[in-house]
Design a protein around this nucleic acid. Structure first.
Lengths: 206, 206
DNA sequence: CAGGGTAAACTTACGCCGTAAGAATCATCA
DNA sequence: TGATGATTCTTACGGCGTAAGTTTACCCTG
C-alpha cells in the first residue's frame, strides 16, 4: 500500500509550516479551535507528530506571538522621530488587527523575539538620531507599544456600539449621549486621535 | 452520619462567593489551575454544583472581569479633568496590578459591566464639567483606559530585565545600552512618565 | 547493493477538562 | 405532615495535552 507518507500530502513538516497552519486555523476558527489534534488533522498528520517540531502547546502559542510580531512592518524614521513612532504604532496596530483572534495571546506571553528586538533596535536608532538618549527612547517605545496594544485590546472586545446599545439613558445620560455619537467615529479615527495626543505629549516632554 | 451539607462547611453558596473564590484561586495558582472541579473542591463542593450559580465557565471568566473592574476606585474629578483622568488611570492600573493573573482575561472579553458603566459615567461627568463634549470625552476615556491596559499588559509579560539580560550587545547595541539602564527606572516611573505625556497631549488637543 | 542508524510519523493510554442528564437531599411553608 | 422548589451529588461522554513505545521512510557507509 505504499508508505503512509505517500497517501497524505504531508512530506516534510517544519516548525514554520506548523506555525503558519496554526495561524490560519486560529484566524479562521478562533483560539479555542486550536487544539493539537485539530491542527494535526489540518496538516494531515496525527497530533503527536507536532511534538516533533514543537515541545509543547505553550511553545506553539509562543510561536504564534512570534509570527504575529514578525508581521510588523519596519518603521520609517527618516522624516522625524514623531513620524517614525507613528509609523511604528500604525504598523504594530495593523499586524494586530490582521489577526484579531491572536491578540489575547500577547496579553499573557512575552513578545520578545529576535524579530521584535530588531524592530526595537531600529526604532531606537531612529530616536537616537533625533537626539533622544537610549534609556529615554526605550521608555518612549514602551509607552507607544503599550498604548497600541491597549487600544487594540479594548477596541477588539467586540463592537462598542453593540455593548452600549442597551444603555439606560436615564441611569447613564452622558454615556447614552456619547454612545449615540459612536457610529460617527470609526476605530481608525479614535486611534489616530489618541495616538496624536500621545505623540504630542511625548514631544512636549523633551 | 447527618446530611452531606453538615460535614462540609458549605451552606449557602452564591454567585458572589463562587466568583470571590475563583479570584483567590486564580491569584494564587494562575488561570490554568482554575477549573470547575478545582474551584468546586476549593469550596467543598462538586464541580457541577457551580453550574447552579453560573451557566458556564465562560460566564465564570466574565464574572472575574466583573470582579476586577469592580475593584477600581472611583476617580476624583474635583481638582481638574487632568487630575481626574490621572486618578482614573492610576486606579485602573492598581486594580489590574492587584490581580496580574486575571489581566489576560480583559484582552479577550468585554469589560462592560454595570459597575464599570458607573465609573465611566462619573468620568464623563467630570469631563463634561470641564467643558468637554460627551462624544469627545468618550474618546478621551477610551484613550486613557486603552493606554492603561496596554501598559499593564506589556509590563506584566514578566520582568523586562529578565528578557533583556541576554541581549547581544553586538547585534543590538542601543537596546543593550537601554537595557542596562532599565533597573534605574521602576514600572511606576515608566507608567507615570507615559501617562503624563498622554495627558499633556490630550490637554493640548482641546 | 546490504544493512544499520536516524528522523519523522503513528498508536495507545492516562488523567484532566467542561458539561449534559438525572437522582438525591434539604429548607420552607401550606 | 407532605408537597414544592432550590440546591447538591452522581454518572457519563467526548475532547484535551502529552508520556511512552512502535513503526515507517530515508540516508549513509561498507
Amino acid at each position: 500500500m505504499a508508505g503512509r507518507r505517500t497517501q497524505g500530502q504531508s512530506a516534510g513538516l517544519t516548525r514554520e509550516a506548523v506555525l503558519r497552519a496554526a495561524v490560519v486555523l486560529a484566524d479562521r476558527e478562533g483560539l479555542k479551535a486550536l487544539s493539537m489534534r485539530r491542527l494535526g488533522a489540518e496538516l494531515g498528520v496525527e497530533a503527536m507528530t507536532l511534538y516533533h517540531h514543537l515541545p509543547s502547546k505553550d511553545a506553539l502559542l509562543d510561536g504564534l506571538v512570534e509570527q504575529l510580531v514578525a508581521g510588523v512592518a519596519a518603521p520609517q524614521f527618516e522624516a522625524s522621530w514623531q513620524e517614525g513612532l507613528r509609523s511604528y504604532a500604525v504598523g504594530l496596530r495593523s499586524a494586530l488587527l490582521a489577526h484579531p483572534n491572536l491578540v489575547p495571546l500577547i496579553a499573557s506571553r512575552p513578545a520578545v523575539t529576535a524579530q521584535n528586538l530588531q524592530v526595537m533596535e531600529a526604532a531606537l536608532q531612529g530616536l537616537a538620531a533625533a537626539g533622544v538618549e537610549p534609556a529615554d527612547a526605550l521608555d518612549v517605545l514602551y509607552a507607544v507599544s503599550g498604548f497600541v496594544v491597549g487600544h487594540v485590546v479594548t477596541a477588539s472586545e467586540g463592537d462598542p456600539v453593540d455593548h452600549f446599545a442597551a444603555i439606560d439613558a436615564g441611569e447613564f445620560p452622558l454615556l447614552a449621549k456619547a454612545a449615540a455619537a459612536v457610529p460617527d467615529r470609526d476605530a481608525d479615527t479614535r486611534f489616530t486621535f489618541a495616538l496624536d495626543a500621545l505623540l504630542k505629549g511625548l514631544d512636549a516632554g523633551r
